[in-house]
Design a protein around this nucleic acid. Structure first.
Lengths: 241, 241
DNA sequence: CGTTACGTTGAAGTATTTCAACACTCGTGG
DNA sequence: CCACGAGTGTTGAAATACTTCAACGTAACG
């Protein structure tokens, strides 16, 4: 425990597994201590919601572990998942009144939560944090825009291939940051078929059929419903390209 | 028509029509003068490209007048338009090496261009600018995510209704900022049918048929191919909701 | 061990695409 | 001024990808 800790409380940030990847990465010990004081950790069960679309945007957060989904709904209930949040990702809408989307945990997750007002005050006083947030937001915008190509111009086969590759690479980055950079071909889907459908803009049946087709063609192998092994990465990449 | 000579010390920013809405809004006179020195104005003809997807990201820019499109392509040539840029919008990818999308003028446009490196240096020294850029980027991310709902979960009818309302409101904001806030129902489409298709993730034929249907149903009226008058705003809003 | 949620499969229906032909608009040159 | 042609937009008919509806499996859980 640092001698400088002005609060005498436990400094979670010091031991935080995403300390070097999240937006807090560039902060010095003193700043971290301050940030630690305004944040707190929160555990979310699968299915638990952190933010509701349309509600006042009270929280922002960093993902420490787990996977969460960002989603929005049409008035008639049709849902569209806007993105997934992995460890070190930032959640919430600073400098905005209402949350433009809902955030729900897909797997058991831990997040590092701040009152939006506290966070905004801290950010405005600490340019480095704001800069990190800007870089991350720009990156997220790029990622989101790439997803528009998928939603607007790909067919079901291409969509699922793209998603599987994306999940594979994100899973690695999130888990094995230290084990060298080999992207393993085995991973667990953090979401149900319905949720996959809501990500890809398809129906559950179409997704299911596509899984079956990939299995029959030997592109993937599955043990249970959620354990995927990529068998022909090249072929998937061809489809996704 | 070449851009005016940047060395002649004229301060374009002073008289800039988007001075109070673009990211430069919060800067003081001194800062504006500095920014003025590193930027220059450039006129773009319809169809002219400012940035190419995949190329080194050399420029960033503010839109002064006109409408531009951001787009990306699949390897086989299928195009998806990622967004439109109206006056006061920011273009380009600061803090990134390559441009993740192409930027092309739809109408005759004027942009205020900066070398990315110059702009980044300026931004890091002037927190207020960076803050404005962050707010704008967060807003753009929200807008982009809302568009995902359209691409993933709406049918052709709903898509076109949404686009028409969006263009109407954006056109107003861009043109009549001072004429009170009445949203006029008459506007000009700044893009071709093919481009509309590329925005909505449809084919040109489907777009055309949908226009015809809206005309037959009296929801809109058209004079020529690009002059739209909204006749039943309620009905369009029902579809878009 | 049955109940319930989740996933798969089949058959029919539908929205959108694809292919093909035709119409309009606009600028150019005869 | 009209004819021409290219680009752009519209319409129809056929093909198809995806959805919808419905039934049936399978895994998960008390």
């Amino acid at each position: 425990m640092q001698a400088e800790d002005p609060t005498n409380e436990i400094n979670f940030c010091q031991a935080c597994s995403v300390r070097n990847r999240a937006i807090c990465a560039d902060l010095d010990d003193h700043e971290i201590a301050l940030l630690n004081k305004i944040g707190r950790r929160r555990r979310l069960a699968p299915g638990e919601t952190l933010l509701w679309e349309g509600d006042e945007a009270v929280f922002v957060a960093n993902v420490v572990s787990g996977v969460l989904k960002l989603s929005t709904q049409k008035s008639d209930g049709r849902e569209q998942i806007l993105g997934l949040a992995y460890p070190s990702d930032f959640l919430g809408r600073p400098f905005g009144e209402v949350s433009p989307y809902s955030v729900e945990a897909l797997s058991e997750s831990i997040v590092c939560v701040f009152q939006r007002s506290d966070f905004e005050r801290f950010a405005e006083e600490h340019g480095r944090l704001e800069h990190k947030l800007l870089e991350r937001t720009l990156g997220e915008l790029d990622r989101t825009r790439r997803w528009m190509l998928l939603l607007g111009r790909m067919n079901a086969e291409e969509k699922l291939a793209t998603l599987l590759l994306e999940i594979a690479s994100r899973t690695v980055l999130a888990t094995c940051e230290n084990t060298g950079w080999k992207v393993p071909d085995e991973f667990e889907l953090p979401m149900s078929r319905q949720q996959i459908a809501d990500i890809l803009g398809l129906t559950i049946e179409t997704v299911s059929r596509q899984f079956t087709k990939f299995r029959e063609e030997g592109l993937i192998e599955m043990r249970g419903r959620r354990d995927v092994t990529i068998r022909k990465r090249d072929a998937l990449e061809m489809l996704a390209a």
